[in-house]
Amino acid sequence: MSVVTLHINDELVSARSDQKLLEVIREQGIDIPTLCHLEGVSDLGGCRLCLVEVQGSSKLLAACVTPVQEGMSVYTHSERLVRYRRMILELLLSERTHTCAVCVTNGHCELQYEAAELGVDHVRYEYLAPQLHLDASHDRFTLDHNRCILCQRCVRVCDEVEGAHTLDIMGRGANSRVITGLNRPWGDCVSCTSCGKCVQVCPTGALFFKGSSVGEMEKRHAFLSWILNGRERKEWQW
């Protein structure tokens, strides 16, 4: 694997040629927000929070899906990027009903964290407040569409790591929803292995363990790389 050199915020940096920009940026200790990105599954490029400016490109590029290139010059925190990131969070907060005060992941939520981090102290857009249901038919987990940001982490982890593909997205645009099976109650889906990976990777309170009360649902994202590394190194014999 060859090595390329590039500039990130005017600092000269070297990277492996198969790396994506996001990885290299984070290796430099630069904090760049993401919501749909998840270590261990494929990238989507959907949340648009990791957009960066690349000199010579008229478009902003999502760092999670953009491969590094020799001689690239990347800026991660220009004034407009920060402003756009803030607006994207505002849009996400307005899309469904994220009433943090009464949420199971209050205090452990990535959306809430990013909003505070980026200084979103209010939302200028109309709260859309769609009427969505909550699926509590599964023995162990609950899916609350009202708090879903459609990052598709659950869909990808169910497909790529667990191999069950119980979850997918139906519809399109603002009517997109995470579905289980043929949009049936989760509890009726025979393909679900009840592994709980989807719950652990969900950045918000859309997926949680049953019985969690406000602020009780903490997630463990790091377990995914633990599983994947272990699998690769064949740490388990069974």
Binding site: L91, E95, A174
Partner: peptide, 11 residues
């Protein structure tokens, strides 16, 4: 007609 994949367009 928005596909719903990215936030800026969807919302």
């Amino acid at each position: 007609e928005s596909c719903g994949k990215c936030v800026p367009c969807r919302v």
